[in-house]
Amino acid sequence: MKLAYWPGCVSRGFTPELHGAMAAVAPKLGLELVQLDRANCCGAGVIAEHNQELVDTLNARTFALAQSVDGAAGMVNICSTCQGAQSECQERLDADAAYRAHINEHLEPEGLEYEKGGAWWNKNFLWLLVEEIGLDVLRDRVVRPLEGLRVGPFYGCYIVRPTRRLGFEFYPERDRYLEMVIEACGAEPVQYAGSHKCCGFPIVTLHRENSLRQAGRHMADALDAGADCVVTPCPLCHLNLDLQQPEARPFVERDLGMPVLHLPQLVGLALGLDIKDLGLHRHVVKTDPVQEKVAALAGAA
């Protein structure tokens, strides 16, 4: 399957292990990714807060670039925040022809035009796995079922709310996909209070204590529920849950040490990829407990 690929900013900045993991996983799933090198930041909610016309134009530009990739089935992203921020703009662009025409005027000098959705789509890798690739295909390609690995899902707000904007009308189980993918990888999903809550990242520079209290609380809940690790389709969540986890510790007054995996890393482990190719050695919270479990599986096989 050929796809226009929007990796986002953070996967090429502070979470390069995510970008690498996606590159390693794609061929294993028969995906040909055409990276949108000219595309711009989604605005992550901040540009939307600053100026709606600006953010709608910037994302219409990304969509237009994706739509011009010959033979692509659609566009894939690897960031919950990109998904939500882009869906918000797409909702406005698709809602009103006059508004869309106005936004497209800004793109005209570049020879670009966003055409209303129709059969075209923009999906996070999580949605792509379940809806386009299919869990049966994923199961077939799993060579290392992650038996005994207990994984807590962490979605990221932007990919689960608001449901009306995010296509839940047509795909009502989108808030359960992580559990389904964890199971398809042979691992065991762990229920805990924070799975669909906010990681706190958007206010880490605005109200640090509240931000880290959220991150810390969710990791503590996952720990109490017996998770070996947490998995997320959102690199911004990863920044608060992994990079900032040591900083969050004082706000929940306990040790945490909860490894946080990117979604392509978890899938990659089940597809038999190497720890290093997936960048699992490049986390702030050591992923050793996960690596040890996976190594034990390999030994048993």
């Binding site: 900013c9 953070v10 090429r12 502070f14 711009n40 930041c41 520079t205 605005l206």
Partner: peptide
Amino acid sequence: NNGYGHEKAFTDLIHKYGWLSEAQL
């Protein structure tokens, strides 16, 4: 609370580079 600074830094960085530099944000 850095609300102004955060918004300005973010929008300025995208104006300058087109994609985000967390290190500068």
